[in-house]
């Protein structure tokens, strides 16, 4: 597999470590009324799509960037690769 790193270009997936669903970026607010339920869903509930899947990969043997990779689970086609930090900010995560 090849991951087309947004800054470095195509790199062998052997340089990367997989984590899981990109929804892990959206960590709930610990002070929410139903924080325990929210954390439960955040940690354990996943969609398992036959098709496009957004997932987190770490460029461990590279620039140490976390990436959000959009991959089709049927074809393995990778349609988009973004810096996870940019994605996190676009989701309103900050400090």
């Amino acid at each position: 597999m090849i991951i087309n790193h947004p800054l470095l270009g195509p790199r062998d997936s052997a340089e990367f470590t997989y984590l899981g669903d990109a929804s892990l970026i959206e960590r709930p607010d610990w002070q929410a009324e139903d924080a325990a339920d929210q954390f439960h869903d955040y940690l354990y509930l996943r969609d398992n799509p036959a098709g496009e899947h957004r997932e987190l990969w770490f460029h461990e043997q590279g620039d140490r960037s976390w990436l959000v990779v959009t991959r089709n689970t049927l074809t393995h086609e990778i349609t988009k690769v973004e810096l996870a930090r940019d994605v996190a900010r676009s989701l309103g995560r900050s400090r």
Binding site: W66, A84, V87, A88, R93, S94
Partner: peptide, 17 residues
């Protein structure tokens, strides 16, 4: 290794600023 990866995850994905 795993801890470093975890810390980078926290830094880049959870609290990017």
């Amino acid at each position: 290794g795993p801890v470093f990866r975890h810390l980078e995850f926290c830094r880049q994905c959870l609290w990017p600023d």
